[in-house]
Amino acid sequence: MINAWLRWSRENELAYLFFRNPVAIVAAIIAILCIGGAVLSPWLAATDPYDIASLDIMDSLIPPAWSESGDARFFIGTDDQGRDLLSAILYGTRLSLLVGFLAITFASVLGVTVGLMAGYFGGRFDAIMMRIADIQLSLPAILTALLVDGIAKGLLPRGQHDNLMIVVLTVAIGLSLWVNFARTVRATTFVERNKEYVQSCEIMGMHPFRIMFTHILPNIMGPILVILTVDLAVAVLLEATLSFLGVGVPANQPSLGTLIRIGTEYMFSGEWWIVIFPSAMLILMIISINVLGDFLRDALNPRMR
């Protein structure tokens, strides 16, 4: 088993570099724990924090189990609603990651498509798309998200709005992140486009979209992979920020950002655990994903070695 691993890592450049980089290994373990915990939260968590009926207001604001007035049932305490904080964090992480993944998928599909087309066709299409990207870049991500949220609020009936909040968040975050993909993909497509394997496809008379997606795309996966990881962290952070500002998910389904927002209200009244634990979770997750992204960027870029 170990031999097989070693053999694989010797043949695979990426695996080889990974197993020689302790920081990347630690980051990967933390990221896997965070993501695994979030995905498995319905089975791991002691209580379901979304089930309002199970909440008891008498349990609210209980400090962590190891402090004097702690309760063994709630290992890291409860929030103001009487929710078990650990369960809430696991569920919240799940929600944050769900929005993050959805948003990043939306952003990458949009950005990669636009980038490929701009890089491949060039000319006027490229000029127009890149000016749109410039406009998008000049709007802060939060502003875009607030804008989308505002429009959604105006268009959707009140009851619908809460249900569709995840979709609204996804679109908002996706819209503010697609530019990264589009610009990088465009630049790398420019390089690939002039390579002779692309020319040989053109000479054959292959459809441009087939050239873009079956020939160029696999060759530019490296940089895309890097942005995917780095921007996943950004998306999770954006979701947390928006929820913190109260634009995000409804309060009865707290995400990490919602939990942190609730926590800040109690920060100076002694109930420190409500803000510290969700924040620690968020920071750990973001840092580990970012470190992985950095590792990928260096490993996939031969000049950095």
Binding site: E196, Q199, I203
Partner: peptide, 16 residues
């Protein structure tokens, strides 16, 4: 009409 290119390192798609 078919063509053979100069640089065999860039004329073949490395991912196929």
């Amino acid at each position: 009409i078919q063509m053979v290119f100069q640089d065999p390192y860039s004329s073949l798609n490395n991912r196929k």
